[in-house]
Amino acid sequence: MKLAILSRNTKLYSTRRLVEAARDRGHSVRVLDPLRCYMRIAVDGFAMHHQGKPLSGYHAVIPRIGASVTRYGTAVLRQFELMRCYTPNPSDSILKARDKLRCHQILAAEGIALPATVFGDNPDDTSDLLAMLGPTPHVIKLNEGTQGAGVMLTEKLSASRSVIEALRGLYANFLVQEFVAEAKGADLRCFVVGDRVVAAMKRQAPKGDFRSNLHRGGSAKAVTPNPRETEVALRAARILGLGVAGVDLIRSNRGPLILEVNASPGLEGIETASGVDIAGSIIEYVANGGHRTGSRRRTASIRAA
C-alpha cells in the first residue's frame, strides 16, 4: 500500500514511529509537509502537487496536523479525500475535535458527560455567565489550546472575571468549566484505534499544578480503563467520526467526564508508558481500510525516518 503521512516534521517521534511501522509491514510511505502541498480544484477533477511534483496513487493518508496549521492542513486533507484517498480521520472530524466549543456541544447533545461548561462573548454578561456555571474554582481554557497551554485555574470569582476580561481584550476565544476536585489533578488518556482502546495511561499533574499534560511535567503510568470509561471513549471518537483519537477523561463522583478528544494524539508518552506498539495498530487499521486489527507489545527499536 502507498501511504502518505501529513506532518511538518519528519523527526517528530510520532511521525518516525508511523514511518517505521509502515515500512516494517512492507508499505511504501512518504511524509508530506501539508504547507508545501498546493491544489487545483475544478469540475473536471482535483489535483495536488508537493514541492513542484504531482501527488497521485496514494491509497491512504494519515494526518498529523498541528493546531497552528489546522485550516490549511485540513484543506489539504480534504483534497486527498476528494481524490478518493482513504483517511482514518476525515478533515471535518478533525475540525470538530479541534474546536473545543463545537466538540463539547456535539458530545453533550449525544449524552456524553463532561464538566459543566459556559461560553459567552459580551463583557456585560460575565457575571451572569459565571453564575450559570456555579461557584469557584473555575477552569478557563482557550478554545484551541493544546498540551495544557492556555488552561488556567481561578480560585476566586474576582480572579475569574479578571482573566475573562484579559482574554476578551486579546480577542481570544475561550471556555469556562467547573473544576472537578475529586479528580485530584489526574486524567486518563484512552488511545482509540477503530473500535478498540488499544492502550491507556493515567497522567498525574506535578505538585503545585492541576494540569496533567506530560509536556507540563506530568507523570504517566499504564492503566486499564474500566468498561464504562472504555465505552465513553469509544463513543466520543465514533460520534466525532475519528478512527484514531486520544480521548482524555477524568474520574468524577458521577462517572467519567470527557475533557477533550485529540484528533492528532502523540505516541511517545503512551507508547513509553504502556509498551504497546500503537503505531503498528494505526498502520494495520489504515491498511485494512478501517477494519479492526490486534495490537502488540512493542519490540522494534526507533529508527530515524
Rank of each mutant, 00 (worst) to 15 (best):
M1I: 06
M1F: 08
A4E: 01
L6Q: 00
N9S: 07
T15H: 02
R16Q: 12
E20M: 00
A21P: 02
R23K: 08
S28K: 14
V29Q: 05
R30S: 05
V31D: 03
V31A: 03
L32E: 01
L32C: 02
L35V: 07
Y38G: 04
A42H: 10
V43M: 11
V43Y: 08
D44W: 04
D44Y: 02
D44R: 10
G45I: 03
A47D: 10
Q51V: 11
P54A: 02
L55F: 02
S56V: 07
S56C: 06
G57D: 02
Y58F: 15
H59Q: 09
A60V: 01
I62E: 03
P63G: 05
I65L: 09
G66H: 00
T70E: 06
T70D: 03
R71A: 12
V76N: 04
E81Q: 08
C85D: 00
Y86F: 04
P88F: 05
P90G: 03
P90M: 00
S91R: 01
S91C: 05
S93C: 01
S93Y: 00
R98C: 06
H104E: 04
Q105A: 07
A108P: 04
E110V: 09
E110T: 08
G111T: 05
P115F: 05
T117S: 13
T117G: 11
V118K: 05
F119E: 04
N122R: 14
P123W: 13
D124Y: 12
T126M: 12
S127Y: 11
S127G: 12
L130M: 08
L133E: 08
K141H: 11
N143E: 10
G150P: 08
V151L: 13
L153F: 14
T154R: 14
L157I: 15
R161F: 14
F179V: 12
F179P: 09
E182F: 13
G185L: 15
G185W: 14
L188G: 13
R189W: 15
G194K: 09
D195K: 14
D195M: 12
A199Q: 13
A199W: 13
R203C: 13
K207E: 14
D209F: 13
F210Q: 07
F210Y: 12
R211A: 09
S212W: 14
R216P: 04
G217N: 09
A222G: 08
P225T: 09
P225G: 08
P227M: 10
R228E: 15
R235N: 13
R235L: 12
L240C: 06
V244D: 01
G246V: 04
V247A: 04
D248N: 03
I250K: 06
S252Y: 03
S252W: 00
G255Q: 09
P256C: 05
P256E: 03
I258H: 03
L259Q: 02
V261E: 08
N262L: 06
S264C: 08
G266F: 10
G269T: 02
I270N: 02
I270R: 00
A273R: 07
S274R: 06
S274Y: 04
D277V: 00
I278G: 00
G280Y: 03
S281I: 00
S281R: 01
S281P: 06
E284F: 00
N288I: 05
G289Q: 07
H291W: 10
H291T: 14
G294F: 09
R297W: 07
T299P: 01
A300F: 08
A300Q: 10
A300S: 11
I302W: 09
A305T: 09
A305C: 13
A305V: 10
